[in-house]
């Protein structure tokens, strides 16, 4: 339990996660109110990282569930381990023979067998999936449900039921109730509208791309080997790329990858050649790379002439058009 928001912030910082006041506030509230947190934002701004860092500062086990299309209950909640049940039946055949040996009719044998049914439908043969693991865990846990927007709407409805009271009924075993309330964090890339009901149950946090200062702090923290001057230049360039009209904008994790690449290549400054070689770390579409190179080329010229590059950057990107073909 945290005393105040500053404590949350410093604890997260100790986990190498730089949190804004807003992030810290939401985490603090989620901890106090025991509510799930729904985190939205563009890909690669550290939504999943937040979940991991949170688990660390709470000293809880992280149970992660990655969502995808077609994810269903057997993959998310539990499954009976048929193979193991089969194996046991085979191995215990003699024992079963002994057991049924004194019965005379088929009905009697079936009754006798039914008495022993519990053995085969016990927790021994239950294969817990992330949701059930979070519920039956002996230690308090933190459940990270990643990219919930990728799962189908039916699964969302099912999840809602589990999240509201943290109990699951397995027909053969009865109801399993959570020993410790797990903390829950859901992330979404906002590719589809989530249901109102799910949103209603969660605290909402939108993480956007960080500001130049914040991103610089992140880069300095994660890639301490990069010279400060270079880090500054690199972050400014990434921020500029985000203002362009690209198919996919570089994420924070890609900035970090790029910074690492620059360290590896022992780059002294961001000249045209270095850029050409490493831009593919930041941009993953051929079209984007070409476009960025063209526009950055213009920037470099502008810089040489001492123009106000920032203004040109804003103006040039949205208005940019290829000349009409005749």
């Amino acid at each position: 339990m945290f005393k105040d928001i500053a404590e949350v912030k410093s604890a997260l910082a100790a986990q190498q996660y730089i949190a804004t006041d807003e992030i810290a506030t939401v985490i603090f509230l989620a901890d106090k109110l025991e509510k799930p947190v729904l985190v939205e934002g563009p890909a690669g701004v550290g939504k999943t990282e937040l979940g991991k860092a949170w688990a660390c500062i709470e000293q809880r086990d992280l149970i992660r569930m990655q969502c995808y299309e077609g994810l269903d209950e057997t993959k998310a909640l539990y499954e009976w381990e048929y193979a193991k049940q089969m194996l046991y039946t085979q191995l215990l055949r003699d024992k079963l023979g002994d057991l049924l040996h004194d019965t005379t009719t088929l009905a009697q044998a079936a009754d006798k067998l039914a008495e022993e049914e519990d053995v085969f439908f016990s927790k021994r043969f239950l294969l817990p999936r992330p949701l059930l693991r979070a519920i039956v865990a002996d230690k308090p846990s933190l459940l990270l449900i990643d990219e919930i927007d990728r799962a189908d709407a039916e699964f969302e409805a099912f999840l809602l039921e589990v999240l509201s009271d943290f109990q699951v009924s397995v027909p053969e075993l009865g109801t399993l109730k959570a020993k410790h309330m797990p903390l829950v964090i859901l992330t979404s890339n906002n590719t589809r509208e989530l249901s109102e009901a799910l949103k209603r149950r969660c605290l909402y946090l939108f993480i956007d791309y960080p500001t130049t200062e914040a991103e610089l702090r992140i880069v300095k923290l994660k890639v301490p080997d990069l010279a400060p001057q270079m880090a500054q230049q690199a972050v400014e360039l990434v921020q500029r790329l985000r203002k362009l009209d690209l198919k996919k904008h570089p994420s924070v994790s890609e900035t970090i990858d790029w910074a690492r690449a620059l360290v590896m290549l022992n780059a002294k400054n961001l000249d045209e050649k270095t850029l050409e070689n490493t831009l593919t770390v930041l941009l993953k579409h051929e079209h984007d790379v070409q476009r960025a190179q063209r526009i950055l080329g213009e920037f470099n010229v502008a810089e040489d002439q001492g123009d106000d590059e920032e203004d040109r950057g804003k103006g040039a990107s949205p208005r940019y058009r290829t000349p009409p073909r005749k």
Binding site: E22, L29, E196, C202, Y204, F206
Partner: peptide, 8 residues
């Protein structure tokens, strides 16, 4: 904001 607004 975190409790009332659930959509960016």
């Amino acid at each position: 904001r975190t409790t009332l607004v659930k959509d960016s």
